[in-house]
Amino acid sequence: MEKFSYVNATSVEQVTTLLSDSRWGEVMLVAGGTDLLGELKEYIETPKTLINLKTLPGMEGIKVDETTGLTIGALTTVADIAKHPTIRHHYAVVAEAAGSIATPQIRNVGTLGGNLCQRPRCWYYRDEATNCLKKGGDICFAVDGLSKYHAILGGDPVYIVHPSDLAPALIALGASVKIVGPEGEKTMLLEDFFTLPAANPFRENVLQSNEIVVEVQVPPAKPNTKSFYLKAREKGAPDFALASVAAVFEMDGKTCASASIVLGGVAPAPWRSKEAEAALTGKMIDDSVSRQAGADAVKDAQPLNDNAYKVTLTQNLVSRAAMMAAS
């Protein structure tokens, strides 16, 4: 890490002011630091100043309310999300996703905000010496290079996969995110928070350089809902998803009243599969319906040299999730 100075944040206003007064990358935010410190150690980022968000009051914790649903502060740790009784019971997909993240040590300090805003793990990106497109260089090395862990959907022109496990799970539940900037706060669907590289190859979300994420809201759990997070990996832990599926179903017996299917590990942003949802909604879920949903989910997949297996994998995970809903 290069030297930097450190500010313990005292208020959201102070944070957004500090950010507004600086150039991109000069002042950065840190929460648990489990992602950011890796970037600093690799000299991928060399900020002059780090703002410690952990000292911000009121941004940590989980609130459950019958009418408004679930509110999770951006500073809430992944471990607290994973073990929260209500989340485990009514929002299983989120608890399962949280429990699948990294290791106990990282879950104990890594935060929700940091998880959503974490940077790509692409091995070209994480190598200081390689100046790829995402870092302002000319090309995406994954295109002609080693692409086992890269995107099969929505890639062009950069083929990272979004590393977050919480994001697909929360999007599948229709969560929204509250953002505060110099002009005040705004709330948007978490789904709209993430962007594809075609829109901006340098960032993974719409957050402006002077904004911060303060909380995530999840609508109240609907009755007869079943939800799952299926994550395929090579190694038990720590390992990012080769592919993952966050699936939320409203079931009427074996019939799927509505389905929400969001893929992780396969695209530069959490990937909502409207195709798979359509294939399931209103149907009696059986083997062939679930297979169709899987096939539809990867209809548009365009694998690189080394990641065609992800097409099969994703397809199978989607079908599996559907069958789990029916059983």
Binding site: R121, Y124, D127, F141, D144, G145, L146, K235, G236, A237
Partner: peptide
Amino acid sequence: FMDPQTGRMLNANLEDYKVPGTF
């Protein structure tokens, strides 16, 4: 993993060079 484009090892760490863990 060696990258033919850059000549560098892509997984010179313990994240992508995977050694057995508890699972």
